[in-house]
Simulated scan of single mutants.
Amino acid sequence: MTSQVTKINQSIILYDDRLMNDIDENIFEIDFWKMDQQAHSQSKGRGTVYFVKIQDEPCVLRHYNRGGFVSRLVEDQYLWMGEGYTRSFKEWHLLNYMVEKRLPVPVPVAARYVRYGICYKADIITREIPDIESLSDKLLGNLMTEELWKKIGECIAKFHDQGVFHMDLNAENIQIDQNNQVFLLDFDKGKVSEPSRRLSDSNLMRLKRSIAKVTKANQLAFPNSGWDMCMTKHHGES
């Protein structure tokens, strides 16, 4: 990819000039897309994502929102610590790195931040992965198979073997397409380091808690056998 950074009014935009050649800060504005009948939204995690078309290519626009207790006080502002530390630019560069490593993630298109004194707000646009369904939805629809559990374990292992750790791995950001290919989404808290058993175990335990939360909330039993198959494949056991 060829990255470029430009400033339009108060928006600082990072983009791949092979995927975008007509830069407009309005593409990050929700109100702009509300006038487009082809655009649509979907509630997800800490906010809403918007499915839009950038230069005729299906893309996903996501605004960064706070989660947890902090979100009760501040909805979508982050402390300014420099451009390289903004959520949007960090995720764009990490996605770019992972695409180069051939890891199954969305292709980054553009990222933006707008600074407000000691704080900033941010957005990111990625290429849409078509026809995907979350692990959470698969669980609720009783659609998980032995093959899928194994593929999830193998997929997560690919990231960990490359020293890439999601840090917020859960049943929503594991997505599966119609060919049963597994993808990981939402890397705004992701990090790259040396392969680490500690970080790997932390990732997996976070995912296990997420699955337990989904199943318990819907009065379903925790999928112990599926989880065991996932872990066996992750650890490279036959």
Rank of each mutant, 00 (worst) to 15 (best):
L61R: 13
R62I: 05
R62L: 06
H63T: 06
Y64R: 10
Y64K: 11
R66C: 01
R66G: 07
G67R: 12
F69A: 09
F69L: 15
V70S: 12
V70D: 07
S71Y: 10
V74D: 04
E75F: 13
Y78N: 06
Y78D: 10
W80P: 11
W80Y: 04
G84H: 14
T86N: 06
R87D: 03
K90R: 15
E91H: 12
E91Y: 04
W92G: 09
H93P: 03
H93L: 02
L95Q: 04
L95K: 03
M98W: 09
V99E: 11
V99F: 11
V99D: 07
V99Q: 05
K101C: 05
K101F: 11
P104D: 13
V107P: 05
V107K: 15
A110Q: 00
A110R: 02
A111L: 08
Y113C: 12
Y113R: 11
R115I: 05
G117L: 10
I118H: 11
C119W: 15
Y120I: 05
Y120R: 11
Y120M: 02
K121I: 10
K121V: 14
D123R: 14
T126I: 14
R127N: 05
I129H: 08
I129S: 02
D131Y: 14
D131W: 11
E133P: 06
S136C: 08
D137K: 15
K138Q: 08
L139S: 02
L140C: 02
G141C: 03
M144A: 01
T145A: 00
W149I: 10
W149L: 02
W149P: 03
W149V: 11
K150E: 07
K150N: 06
K150Q: 13
K150C: 07
G153C: 07
E154T: 15
F159W: 09
H160D: 05
Q162L: 14
G163T: 03
F165K: 09
H166W: 13
M167K: 14
D168E: 08
L169H: 10
N170C: 03
A171D: 06
A171K: 04
A171Q: 07
E172R: 14
D177E: 08
N179V: 03
N179F: 03
N179C: 03
N179W: 10
N180E: 09
N180K: 13
D186N: 03
K189A: 05
